[in-house]
């Protein structure tokens, strides 16, 4: 299957350099530690009743760890587009793929999914390290229970991140712009502080970001709430996912058609 081939290729190219993998994990950790300590300093301890009241999770490290790990994975398909696809565009390997019977759509989706899985591996390490370092109480059962939501969230992340696949094919150098976008998402989706502290219009905007709902839902399930407590979040994800996929698909089709007029290289 072509999808497995793309995945194998991406995994090989990434995990071939252990130093790069280790440095990714370290970057992930350093970033996380900063935020957790900063948050605790502001709150004056690890427990916050405001956090508890507005999100259902009162333990700050637990709150931040889950949001952070999901954020990292959520921007992964976007990174795959603006760096991975861009790199192949520049080098000409993309054309080698386009010329094959596999088709560009399958290649692009496979690539984004591969990056998301690679980042998941890295984030699994960061997560477990975080659990140990911050003494987060971990229930394997709760983690298992959160998996279906994580799966749904992945679909939503993929759909929204692939918008950038179409964009990068035409506008090429959008990496820096995407980076700004990544941090915007980090701040307005309630990863490090509850949304209730933000202005109302930002809160409405944050509803459009799949990460907001996935982080909320996973946090609740993680601390033992039942599925019935996350129906709102699930409904949002079920609404956003097809919308993002549709938007990404339309944009991709336009980009593909345009690229076939302009040429895939076009530098």
């Amino acid at each position: 299957m072509a999808f497995l081939a793309v995945m194998e290729k991406e995994f090989r190219m990434f995990f071939r350099y252990p130093l790069r993998v280790v440095s990714s994990v370290l970057v992930g950790l350093v970033f996380l530690v900063q935020f957790v300590y900063f948050g605790q300093a502001v709150l004056g301890g690890r427990y916050s009743s405001i956090l508890q009241a507005s999100t259902g999770v009162g333990d700050y490290p637990t709150y931040a760890l889950i949001g952070y790990v999901l954020w990292w994975v959520s921007v992964s398909p976007m990174e795959a587009s603006v760096w991975g696809i861009r790199r192949e565009l520049q080098r000409g390997t993309l054309e080698s793929n386009v010329a094959s019977p596999m088709g560009l759509l399958e290649m692009v989706v496979s690539l984004a999914l591969s990056w998301m899985l690679m980042d998941s591996v890295i984030m699994a390490v960061v997560f477990l390290t975080g659990v140990i370092a911050f003494g987060v109480s971990l229930s394997w059962f709760a983690l298992l229970k959160a998996l279906p939501i994580v799966g749904l969230a992945f679909l939503a992340f993929l759909g929204s991140g692939l918008i950038f696949a179409g964009l990068v094919m035409i506008f090429k150098n959008i990496g820096p712009f995407a980076q700004i976008f990544e941090f915007l998402v980090l701040f307005i989706s309630g990863v490090f502080f509850p949304l209730s502290t933000l202005p109302a219009w930002v809160v409405s905007l944050s509803k459009l970001i799949p990460l907001t709902h996935s982080a909320n839902a996973v946090r609740k399930l993680f601390v033992g709430f039942p599925y019935s407590s996350v129906t709102g979040e699930v409904a949002w994800l079920l609404l956003l996912t097809p919308l993002y996929w549709l938007a990404s698909y339309a944009l991709f089709k336009w980009a593909e058609r345009t690229a076939r007029v302009m040429g895939y290289g076009g530098y």
């Binding site: 000409g92 390997t93 596999m102 290649m107």
Partner: peptide, 27 residues
């Protein structure tokens, strides 16, 4: 096709891995 230029293969894969990749995407 053999396209123009020298970057049409994956430099960070081996010769064998390149051919296996392309054999897969050519079914």
């Amino acid at each position: 096709l053999v396209a123009e230029g020298e970057r049409t293969l994956y430099w960070r894969l081996s010769a064998y891995e390149n051919l296996r990749y392309f054999s897969n995407i050519y079914y």
